[in-house]
């Protein structure tokens, strides 16, 4: 209702015009900020933590388009200011009325604020806590990803963690894999339901964006010592072989590790 009061005063002082101008400036600022934000995420690689690599091009294209729109609007704005000095105001009310739900300026201010915050923000890759919260699955049948191209010819030691999960998914009998060589990478999970000399090695899989990331993982039997030497969220390459064990009342495939090497967190931590 404040707008109505605004309008009453407009008739005399023409603040409506300045309201438009303010709204226009806010719009331009919000649109430019989002353009810059998308490009910044792309150029700094932060976007890898947010999106599946297939869709990164959409994000940066949108960034360019937004900056383009902002540029045109700035040009228009300057032109209009110049013109206004020459002659009386053009009819502003000629636009196809779009129905708006919020008071003017509200949305643009929110968009601008979020974009400015986003510029400061550094996303963190999802970590073990999130994985435990979401429930690590060993099978993908519960979840959504189905193997697109399944190659049985892959040597066991060349399989990634995801390949292993997919293979198990197709043929779940653990004994079929016992003795096969393993060489996988992932982050460490401390699974609460298994003894101290086991860790989980896990990865997040995304199909679209971080919103649908879900963890997959397998238990690892440590060669010696207990899991306190392996901090959660640290990335390791695990080499060893497959064994079958009964863990947490479930007969399952376990990696008997012979060597664990700490590796840096990959730039694109999600598997796809």
């Amino acid at each position: 209702m404040t707008v109505q009061t605004n309008y009453k005063t407009t008739r005399r002082f023409h603040p409506l015009k300045s309201l438009y101008r303010l709204q226009g400036l806010l719009d331009i600022a919000a649109i430019s900020a989002w353009g810059v934000l998308l490009l910044q995420y792309w150029l700094t690689g932060k976007i890898n933590l947010l999106l599946h690599p297939n869709y990164v091009w959409l994000a940066y294209s949108a960034g360019f388009v937004l900056l383009g729109v902002a540029t045109v609007k700035i040009a228009q704005f300057i032109w209009r200011v110049v013109q206004l000095k020459k002659r009386k105001d053009r009819n502003q009310g000629d636009l196809l009325q779009h129905l708006s739900l919020f008071p003017p300026g509200w949305s643009s201010a929110l968009l601008l604020a979020v974009a400015l915050f986003g510029l400061q923000f550094t996303p963190q890759p999802f970590a073990s806590q999130m994985a435990l919260d979401r429930g690590v699955t060993e099978t993908l049948t519960m979840t959504r990803s189905q193997p697109q191209a399944f190659r049985t010819s892959t040597k066991p030691e060349n399989r990634t963690l995801i390949d292993w999960i997919r293979t198990l998914n197709v043929y779940p009998e653990p004994d079929a894999y016992t003795g096969q060589k393993v060489n996988v990478e992932g982050f460490v999970l401390h699974l609460p339901q298994v003894p101290d000399n086991y860790i989980g090695i896990a990865r997040f899989v995304i199909t679209c964006c971080a919103a649908d990331a879900y963890p997959v993982g397998m238990p690892v039997k440590l060669p010696s010592g207990n899991r306190s030497a392996y901090q959660p969220d640290k990335w390791y390459r695990v080499a060893g072989q497959m064994i079958t064990e009964t863990l947490a009342d479930k007969r399952q495939l376990v990696i008997q590790a012979s060597k664990l090497t700490e590796i840096p967190t990959p730039a694109n931590p999600y598997a796809s």
């Binding site: 989002w34 998308l38 995420y41 976007i47 933590l49 947010l50 999106l51 869709y55 959409l58 994000a59 294209s61 949108a62 388009v65 937004l66 979020v114 986003g118 923000f121 996303p123 963190q124 999802f126 970590a127 806590q129 999130m130 679209c208 964006c209 971080a210 919103a211």
Partner: peptide, 24 residues
Amino acid sequence: MNQFNNALTLFFSLLVEAIPFLLI
């Protein structure tokens, strides 16, 4: 704090994925 960061990461990932489509 970690939870907060996860929430923000989710939030921005939704936005970054959705804005191109909104634009189209």
